[in-house]
Amino acid sequence: MNRSVTPSAAPGRAPSGGATWGTVSALVLRELYRLRRERSRWTGLVLQPLLLWAILGAGLRDRFVVPGASGLDYSTFFFPGVVVMTLLFTAIFGTMSVIEDRQQGFLQGVIVAPAPRFALVLGKVLGVTCIALVQMVLLVAVAPLAGFSLAGVQLPMLVAALLLTAIGLVAVGFAMAWRLPSTQAYHAVMSVVLIPLWVLSGAMFPVTGGVLGAIMAANPMTYAVAAVRHAFAGGLASTGPSPLVSFSALLAFAVLALLVATRTALRPSRRIA
């Protein structure tokens, strides 16, 4: 600890223009570093929904007839819902680290950097989204087991659906994690809010009418499930929203969630200091 370091910069030196994108790329890179170190944990987030799909698919195959698509195997109907569930689990798990970062101190170092707060939000959201997309490669690879032909998958549509859904869900998770005091509180809120929304997304049963139908129509995850179904096989989603409606709703959800997350991150919080 006795070697020289070069002198400080001139006071008030303007930062290089790279601080904003540097922050975004650093936070994305950080998630990828963590993915490399915690592969088993992230893989578990894929395997858990797949296990649920296998059990429910096998159990309900002979008992559940999809309205408007008789003869459709329940495992096939349920698979896009499992894809969205995996995105949801990854969003919850990935943004929980916002609370850990706040408690362990990493977050403070990012907040005081010469970059706008939006860079922090975008970096975290894109970082977790990257992990989600890596997981999706695993899920798409097993899609033939659910009766989908890989050749029939409309890849650009699928990527767009996954990207918008992941961005929206991660941004929602970020906003909640920023405001909540502990990982326990975060888990509780996510279980009460997001898991029921997934159940009411058309993932397990088609969109219905009445009060339940109104809730499902207002639920962004309904459009995520529908968009993924359209991407896997167009006819499968005949009971849900159209591709245009689905993607428009998902785009609005992603943009709105990002704005809410940024606004939340700009609010003063004693927990940060």
Binding site: R13, P15, F106, G109, A115
Partner: peptide
């Protein structure tokens, strides 16, 4: 940009290496 801060709790990711932490910080500081 003119201020450097050492907080009470180190602003480092304990799950990453020293090199990774400092590399990320260099990016964050532009």
């Amino acid at each position: 940009a003119a201020i450097g801060v050492v907080f009470q709790s180190p602003s480092l990711d304990p799950k990453l290496s020293v090199a990774e932490n400092l590399g990320l910080c260099a990016l964050i500081r532009g």
